[in-house]
């Protein structure tokens, strides 16, 4: 019951702020609306007791990605200006495409036969940690170390690209 009420509150928040994010004519405001959407999504993960995923959602998406988007927006010119309203033709086309996308998604969701999972999917942070660091058959220690190399590569790439832009 409580979960249901929370779900509807969070779903309302997501729908309202998503709508505001795409209709806002000021790009900085759209970013802040997006932040609320991501926070409410984290709330949905908390409802289904997927605490680790909710933590990731808060740390990486609400924290990192939004910070990155804010910086990206702050780098653009004329942030304070209102963006022009799209033409009627654009609105109609975008509306049609959105409705088509929503139709496909909803029909797939309704057609799918959802079954309640009985196996442990490792919601527990401790379970995730054990699997992540286990070097046995079910362990993921190699991906864990590869991730650090991936992060290293992305950091070096970011610095190389950004530094080259500085010199110009």
């Amino acid at each position: 019951m409580g979960a249901q009420i929370m779900f509807y509150i969070l779903a309302t928040v997501i729908v309202v702020f998503s709508f505001l994010a795409v209709t806002s004519r000021k790009v900085m405001r759209a970013t802040v609306y997006l932040l609320f959407v991501l926070l409410a999504t984290a709330g949905l993960y908390f409802i289904i007791d997927y605490n680790f995923m909710a933590g990731i959602q808060l740390i990486v998406y609400a924290g990192g990605i939004v910070a990155l988007i804010v910086f990206a927006v702050m780098l653009t010119e004329k942030i304070g200006d209102k963006i022009e309203s799209p033409s009627n033709m654009q609105m109609i086309l975008a509306g049609l495409i959105s409705i088509a996308g929503a139709g496909v998604t909803i029909s797939v969701l309704l057609g799918h036969d959802f079954k309640q999972s009985t196996q442990n999917i490792g919601q527990n942070v401790a379970t995730i940690g054990e699997n992540l660091l286990n070097y046995g058959k079910d362990g993921y220690v190699l991906p864990f170390e590869v991730v650090s190399i991936l992060l290293l590569a992305s950091m070096i790439a970011a610095i190389v690209v950004a530094k080259r832009k500085f010199e110009n």
Partner: peptide, 9 residues
């Protein structure tokens, strides 16, 4: 922006 990227990583 560079600081933001390093922070994100």
């Amino acid at each position: 922006y560079l600081f933001a990227i390093i922070y994100l990583i």
